[in-house]
């Protein structure tokens, strides 16, 4: 278990750093997929194989492909100098991010979480279904959130179409 944890943590964090630091945008996308895979592995370790499945399907599959499409549409030849891929504010950005990481890690580590042990969450698909719909012993609020999520997805789909649609006058350009 410990070995698996270390490997997964290294995979996730190093791939995350890769996303930020790689000079080529496509490499960034691929590093991102790797990082997502690491998180999926964590989900398996945390007794949530269903979520891990979702993660792989949606993030590693759909989102990565979408991002690659976006890169394909928007990339123009550009210098790959390390300085050029970063903002001018990279030093204060690094300091701020470091501060944030230290702060979060510190707070989460010193917090007394009480009697904790793994394996408390729902494992089976049926349990997830019941949880999401607020059925049985689970709180009702999830039913509402579930519907809200559905509406958001619908709106986002429409919005994406509206925003990215070429207008007629633009065609003439």
């Amino acid at each position: 278990m410990t070995v698996a944890f270390v490997v997964l943590a290294a995979l996730t964090l190093l791939a995350g750093l890769g996303v930020v630091l790689s000079r080529h945008v496509v490499h960034s996308a691929l590093f991102m997929a790797a990082s997502f895979l690491g998180v999926a592995g964590f989900f398996v370790m945390l007794n949530a194989p269903v979520l891990a499945g979702f993660q792989v399907l949606i993030y590693v599959g759909a989102v990565t492909v979408l991002v690659l499409f976006a890169i394909m549409f928007t990339q123009r030849p550009q210098a790959r100098s390390f300085r050029l891929i970063l903002q001018r504010q990279h030093v204060p950005g690094l300091l701020a991010a470091l501060g944030l990481g230290v702060f979060l890690a510190y707070v989460l580590a010193i917090q007394d979480w009480g009697e904790v042990s793994p394996g408390q969450g729902p494992r089976a698909v049926e349990d997830f279904g019941a949880l999401l719909l607020g059925a049985g012993e689970y709180p009702d609020v999830f039913a509402l959130l579930f519907q809200l999520g559905a509406v958001i997805l619908l709106i986002a789909t429409i919005a994406a179409i509206v925003i990215s649609r070429r207008r007629r006058e633009e065609d003439e350009l």
Binding site: L17, V20, G93, G101, L104
Partner: peptide
């Protein structure tokens, strides 16, 4: 991971 994401988003 969150800090790394923040860093990237900032710079």
């Amino acid at each position: 991971l969150f800090a790394i994401g923040t860093y990237g988003a900032l710079v």
